[in-house]
Design a protein around this nucleic acid. Structure first.
Lengths: 222, 222
DNA sequence: GGCGATACTGAACGCATGTTCAGTATCCTA
DNA sequence: TAGGATACTGAACATGCGTTCAGTATCGCC
C-alpha cells in the first residue's frame, strides 16, 4: 500500500533484508528458507523464484553487505579504515545486523569472506604506512604481518560481541556503553603498549635468531 | 589387537576423538553422526548407544577439550596463561585439532564456551595484575576491560587461523612458520604500542569526558 | 558352562530441509 | 483490451538428518 516507508520496498529486497538479518543472527546453516520466507511475509517458493537457490541468495547478501559496510571501494581504491570502523561502532544499533552478518562472513570462511578480509588487511596496511610516514605511528619490523594483527584487532568487537557484552554484564550483546568502555583500554594499549620494558621483545628476538638462519631484523618484502 | 597405539583404545574414546576432530574441522551442525561413526569405524547407532544423543556427545567433547587444553584447573585455581598458550602454539601440530575445537566452542556460543571464555579472562586478569604489581606491565585504567581485550588478542591466532595462514601465503592454515612470523610484530605492539604520541588517547579521553557525566580518569571499581 | 549385562549392527521412522512444478493472480506493453 | 511476461502460491519431492528398536554377538562373573 504505502510506499514511503521501507516496509514494503521491493518484495525482492524485503527478502534480502530478512535473509541478512537471519543469516547474521543464527548463521547461514540454521537459517532456513522457510524461516526467511515467513519473516519476509512471502512463501518459501518465492524466495527461490527470486534468487534461484539458497547459495545464490547468500552470494547476493554477501555482496550487499560488503557494499553497504565498506562503501563502494571503486571510489579511491580505499578510504580511511579507522574512520569507517568508528562509524560502525558509533552507530551500533543501525549497523548491528550488518556487522553480525559481516562477522559471520569472516569466520565462516566463504569466498567473499576471504576477499573482504584481504581488503581489510590491505586498507589497514596503507593506514599504518601513512602513520609511519607522518611519524604518528611506530614502524614495524614486518608491516604486512602487523597489518594483519591490527586488522584482526579491529574485528574483535564484532567476533566477540557476545562474550564482551556478557562479561561486562550487559544483556544485549555489544551495547553502546560496552563500546565506550572498550575505547580507553584499547587506546592505552595502542599508546603505551603492555610491557614497561623491552625485555620480552628482546628475549624473543634472540630466541628467534637462534632458531632461524638469518638474524636480519627486517621483515620480508611485499 | 595391539593396545600400545591409541588406534583402538576404547571404542568409546575413539568415537569421542573422531567427534572432536570433525566438530573442530567442520563445526557441530555440519558434522553428522553418520560421518563421525564412519570416521571411527563403527555404526551410527553405536555412537548414540555410548553417548545418548548428539548434544550429550558435544557436552562430553567440550569437557574433554577444556580439560586437555586448560589443564585440570582444580590444581591451583589457575596457572600461567601466557605459558599455556605458548605451549599450544609451540606444538601446534599436536594441538591443532583441540585448538580448532576450542575456537569453535568460543565462537559458537555454547554454555561451556561461555565458561571457558570467562576462565580465560580471569586468568588473564590475574596475569595482568601480577605484571602490574611487579612493575613489568603498565597499570590500566580499567583492568577488567583490559583483561578481556588481552584475552581476545590471545585467541586471535585460533579464530583467524584460516585467514592468517592464507594472507601469509601458507597453505595449511596456521603453520609453525606463520606463528613464528607473528611473534615479533605482536611483541612490538605490546612493547611500544602503535602510536608514537598520546594524542589519540588524550583526544578520546576528553571526548568521552564530554559525553559522560564524570570526567574522572579512573575506571570503575570491580 | 551358563547367563545376565554390555557392545554392536541394520533397518527403519519421523522430521526438517532445499528444491521443483503446475497453476493462479497481477502487471506491463502493443 | 488482449496477451505474454512476471510475481506469487500450495503441494509435493527427494534427501539427509537425529533417533529408535529389535536382534545378534561378545564379554565377565557365579
Amino acid at each position: 500500500m504505502r510506499s514511503v516507508s521501507p516496509e514494503d520496498a521491493t518484495t525482492r529486497s524485503r527478502i534480502r533484508d530478512a535473509s541478512v538479518l537471519l543469516f547474521g543472527r543464527v548463521g547461514f546453516e540454521k537459517a532456513s528458507i522457510r524461516a526467511i520466507a515467513e519473516s519476509a511475509g512471502v512463501s518459501p517458493a518465492l524466495v527461490l523464484h527470486h534468487f534461484g537457490s539458497k547459495e545464490r541468495l547468500r552470494d547476493e547478501c554477501d555482496r550487499y553487505i560488503v557494499d553497504e559496510v565498506m562503501g563502494r571501494n571503486d571510489e579511491l581504491g580505499h578510504g580511511d579504515l579507522a574512520a569507517t570502523m568508528q562509524r560502525w561502532l558509533a552507530d551500533i544499533d543501525t549497523f548491528r545486523p550488518s556487522l553480525d552478518y559481516l562477522s559471520r562472513m569472516i569466520t565462516d570462511g566463504s569466498e567473499h569472506g576471504d576477499r573482504l578480509f584481504d581488503q581489510l588487511v590491505s586498507r589497514t596496511e596503507s593506514m599504518l604506512a601513512a602513520g609511519a610516514a607522518d611519524g604518528s605511528m611506530h614502524e614495524s619490523s614486518d608491516p604486512r604481518m602487523t597489518a594483519v594483527i591490527v586488522a584482526t584487532h579491529g574485528l574483535l568487537p564484532l567476533i566477540f560481541e557476545r562474550h564482551i557484552g556478557r562479561v561486562l554484564g550487559e544483556s544485549g550483546g555489544l551495547t553502546e556503553s560496552a563500546i565506550r568502555r572498550m575505547t580507553l583500554p584499547t587506546l592505552e594499549l595502542y599508546t603505551r603498549g603492555l610491557y614497561t620494558s623491552d625485555a620480552v621483545l628482546e628475549a624473543a628476538r634472540t630466541a628467534l635468531a637462534r632458531t632461524m638462519g638469518a638474524p636480519s631484523p627486517e621483515g620480508e618484502g611485499r
